[in-house]
């Protein structure tokens, strides 16, 4: 059997500017004469490096990796949004990519109009949309608001409608990026069910990128593990997820510091009860955080505090070694002399 997706020696290089290159404007160029000629100074950054893999018809494959591992870049190249720098991909089938649900949704248009426009940019022909229209609306469950402008929909309703269109695409290859992380649990389940029936029941090929390891585990057989733009492994999803969880390096050097440097945290590690490095904890687990501390003075007295922040960088709680309430215990001091 020929692979439906064949990726060969694929690399993607971005030219990353030293600092300011996010926005180009004529003024930037004019204000510094060194930039008048030639392109601004940049460094190559390999978002993907020598990627090779084959996916066969009917497979559902997950792509796993940390932020910046190149997952989304790979998906963008597969869906032809951005070209590769070197290498090639052969795709043997109609491709639909869902990098976002509801791309092109317009708040002023009605639900009905949005279904048509969204369907069209996702690659459906007009007659295909007409044929599937009732089914799409049924799936979304918003039939009463069909002729209401989208801006009056709740965000949940918008999402249902968007996913309903996406779920009714008819490609041989479906590329999905982190789209299910939004929306209520019940609807997520429905979408997962639909995706599973797409891949298993109808013999379609699905490539999914997600941080939701549970979902990847549920719907895929094999997965690709990406790290720093390179493929580390491509095999059974259960094994890949194990490997991923263990490979996560959470023991890192700290680069951002402030203070008088009399005492410094050199390294930290996050471990589970059995002293294994991990970033995954279940309810009720003990979290062990190991600090390596450097002090200039022997026997210096210090206090350690840890802040817990949410994804918005807001502090939820904190514990200190001084606090009797917290459960932070200092087990031995690693003191190093300079």
């Amino acid at each position: 059997m020929k692979p439906i997706i064949a990726v060969r020696d694929l690399s993607k290089v971005y030219q990353i500017g030293s600092k300011e290159e996010r926005y180009y404007s004529l003024r930037d160029r004019l204000s510094s004469p060194s930039k008048w000629f030639g392109s601004p100074k940049t460094e190559p950054f390999y978002a993907l490096k020598d990627i090779n893999f084959d996916i066969y018809p009917g497979e559902t494959v997950g792509i796993i990796g940390r932020n910046g591992a190149g997952k989304s870049t790979l998906l963008k190249i597969l869906s032809r949004i951005t070209p590769p720098t070197t290498g090639s991909i052969k795709l043997r089938g109609r491709v639909a990519s869902l990098l976002e649900v509801g791309t092109g949704f317009h708040p002023e248009l009605t639900g009905r109009e949005n279904v048509y426009f969204n369907g069209a940019i996702l690659g459906l022909k007009k007659h295909e949309i007409q044929k599937k229209f009732d089914e799409i609306i049924d799936f979304s469950g918003v039939e009463t608001f069909l002729d209401t402008p989208l801006k009056k929909y709740s965000s949940g309703m918008q999402l249902r409608l968007a996913f309903a269109v996406a779920a009714h695409l008819d490609p041989e290859i479906l590329l999905v990026d982190e789209v299910l992380s939004v929306g209520d649990a019940e609807f997520q389940k429905k979408c997962l069910g639909k995706m599973e029936s797409v891949s298993k029941g109808e013999g379609r090929t699905v490539v999914v990128v997600s941080h939701d390891l549970g979902m990847i585990e549920k719907i895929t057989n094999n997965s690709i593990l990406l790290t720093g733009g390179e493929i580390i492994d491509f095999k059974n999803t259960n094994l890949i997820i194990k490997k991923y969880k263990n490979s996560i390096i959470n023991s890192e050097l700290i680069s951002k510091r402030f203070g008088n440097k009399k005492i410094q945290i050199i390294k930290y590690k996050i471990l589970n009860e059995s002293n294994i490095l991990t970033n995954y904890f279940y309810m009720g687990d003990d979290i062990h955080i190991n600090f390596q501390i450097f002090s200039k003075e022997l026997n210096s007295d210090f206090e350690l505090a840890i802040n817990f922040k949410n994804e918005k960088d807001e502090i939820i709680t904190h514990i200190t070694s001084f606090d009797s309430i917290g459960k932070l215990k200092l087990i031995g001091k690693t003191l190093l002399l300079n």
Binding site: P83, P84, T85, S88, I89, K90
Partner: peptide, 15 residues
């Protein structure tokens, strides 16, 4: 029914 050939795409660097 569309044949496989109709949907064969090769993605390559822009040259």
């Amino acid at each position: 029914m569309v044949s496989e050939k109709d949907h064969y795409i090769e993605i390559k660097p822009i040259t």
